[in-house]
Simulated assay, not measured.
Amino acid sequence: MIYFAYGSNLDPVQWALRCPGSPHVAVGRLDGYRLHFPRHSPVRRCAVASIGAAAGEVVWGALYRMSAQDLEALDAREGHFADRPDESRYLRASVRVARLDAGVVETVTYVANPSPDPGLPSEDYVKHLLDGAIHHGFPEAYVAMLRSVKTMVGA
């Protein structure tokens, strides 16, 4: 199974700690979606990323080949409960992603169940996205968009 990461799991340091048995395989582009921050994380104490349908928009991400063990651990980390979707923080979704190296691939990703008042992401949280975007060589326009994300003051 291929996982499409677009949020803090882009950060190679964080990814190595979370899913050491799931290697990076490519960079991908998800057309017709936008990045936004609709969910408050009590762990990070800020808004966290998700994707939402948006014509003409694009979300860049990293593709990882998931081991079964790492996918189970990631489900737990992301708060995905297959048997209790109403209680899940994130739901798994299938999306078709254009690989930079060739073709389109069916992937799994997570989409947030929105919070009523998520607030803003913290500078530290957005830094994970930026570090990953730079590491994976995302287009400069996308990196600039991430740099422009409004964050919590002093966070």
Results as ranks from 00 to 15, higher is better:
Leu74Pro: 04
Asp86Met: 03
Val59Glu: 02
Glu78Ile: 06
Ser88Cys: 00
Arg65Tyr: 11
Asp75Trp: 02
Ser50Leu: 00
Tyr64Trp: 09
Tyr64Glu: 06
Gly56Ser: 11
Arg77Val: 01
Glu72Asp: 12
Pro85Ile: 01
Ser67Asn: 14
His80Asn: 13
Gly56Cys: 14
Gly79Lys: 00
His80Thr: 15
Gly61Tyr: 02
Asp75Gln: 06
Val95Thr: 08
Arg77Ser: 08
Arg92Ile: 12
Arg65His: 14
Ala93Leu: 02
Ala73Met: 11
Ala49Phe: 10
Ile51Ser: 03
Asp83Val: 00
Asp86Gln: 05
Asp75Glu: 08
Ala55Val: 14
Gln69Ala: 15
Ala54Val: 10
Asp83Asn: 00
Asp70Leu: 04
Ser88Ala: 01
Ala93Ser: 13
Phe81Ile: 15
Val58Ser: 13
Gly56Tyr: 09
Gln69Asp: 10
Ala53Met: 10
Gly52Asn: 05
Asp86Ile: 02
Val95His: 09
Arg77His: 14
Gly61Arg: 08
Ala76Asp: 07
Tyr64Gly: 04
Ala73Cys: 10
Gly52Ile: 03
Glu57Leu: 14
Leu91Arg: 07
Phe81Asn: 09
Ala62Gly: 14
Glu87His: 10
Ala68Glu: 15
Phe81Met: 13
Glu57Cys: 15
His80Ile: 08
Ala53Thr: 13
Gly52Trp: 03
Ala54Ser: 13
Arg89His: 02
Arg96Trp: 07
Arg96Ser: 09
Met66Phe: 08
Ile51Asp: 00
Leu74Cys: 10
Gly79Leu: 06
Gly61Val: 10
Ser50Asp: 09
Glu57Pro: 11
Ala82Glu: 08
Met66His: 01
Ala55Leu: 15
Ser50Gln: 09
Ser67Thr: 15
Asp83Pro: 00
Val59Pro: 04
Gly79Asn: 07
Ala93Ile: 11
Glu72Pro: 06
Asp75Ala: 05
Tyr64Leu: 01
Leu63Met: 13
Leu71Cys: 08
His80Lys: 06
Arg84Met: 05
Val59Ser: 09
Val58Gly: 04
Glu87Phe: 01
Ala53Ile: 12
Arg92Asn: 09
Ala68Leu: 13
Met66Cys: 02
Val97Ser: 04
Met66Asn: 01
Ala53Gln: 14
Phe81Gly: 01
Gly61Leu: 09
Arg92Ser: 12
Val97Asp: 02
Gly61Met: 10
Ala76Glu: 12
Ala55Asp: 15
Trp60Leu: 10
Asp86Phe: 02
Pro85Arg: 05
Glu57Val: 11
Arg89Leu: 01
Gly52Gln: 12
Ala54Pro: 01
